[in-house]
Design a binder for these strands. Structure first.
Length: 158
DNA sequence: GCCAACGTTGGC
DNA sequence: GCCAACGTTGGC
């Protein structure tokens, strides 16, 4: 199966690409996803070797800032069992985990962040889920064509 | 900080 | 099963 591409949103004040880069082994578990659609994408679609755009959201200029790869497929998110975690879910149990996470590893930081306005300006990228009105999905698929274009922009090519 | 759009919850 | 109320996301 061909490698697939994704976009992961994160508020950099909570967790940034640099945070990922500074992790031991430059890898981390993507915990805290509490949306069924996003969970199902992790559970059903994401495979080791898939790549993702790391996107910084909820800031002045939202932007894709680099890439990472999936290094472990979906498994239970431990924070759902921890009453002290903000992601705790009392309706979940280790027997019947409701929420999943994947592990990702840092790959690249863009020379030039690819901003949301920049993405919006390109007709070739107009079909991206990211641009859909009201699309708040924190994990979303990216078409290979869009992936290529954004990586080129990130390299600083025109 | 505002608020539109969306997902979830819970009363009925 | 409907839908109003609520909480959250995220661009602006």
């Amino acid at each position: 199966m061909a490698r697939r591409y994704w976009l992961f949103k994160s508020e950099p004040s909570a967790y940034s690409l640099d945070d990922l880069r500074n992790e031991p082994g430059q890898r981390a578990c993507w915990d805290g996803v509490r949306n069924y659609q996003a969970r199902n994408l992790m559970r059903d679609e994401m495979k080791v070797g898939d790549r993702l755009l790391f996107y910084h959201s909820a800031i002045k200029v939202p932007a894709a800032v680099g890439t990472a790869e999936i290094v472990r497929e979906a498994y239970p998110d431990h924070t759902q069992f921890d009453p002290r975690s903000p992601y705790y879910d009392a309706r979940s149990s280790p027997d019947q985990p409701r929420w999943l996470m994947v592990d990702i590893r840092f790959l690249t930081a863009f020379a030039e962040p690819v901003s949301l306005p920049q993405i919006r300006r390109l007709p070739e990228l107009s079909s991206m889920l990211l641009l859909k009105k009201g699309c708040r999905l924190s994990l979303q698929p990216v078409e290979p064509e869009a992936w290529k274009i954004i990586l080129d922009l990130g390299r600083g090519k025109k």
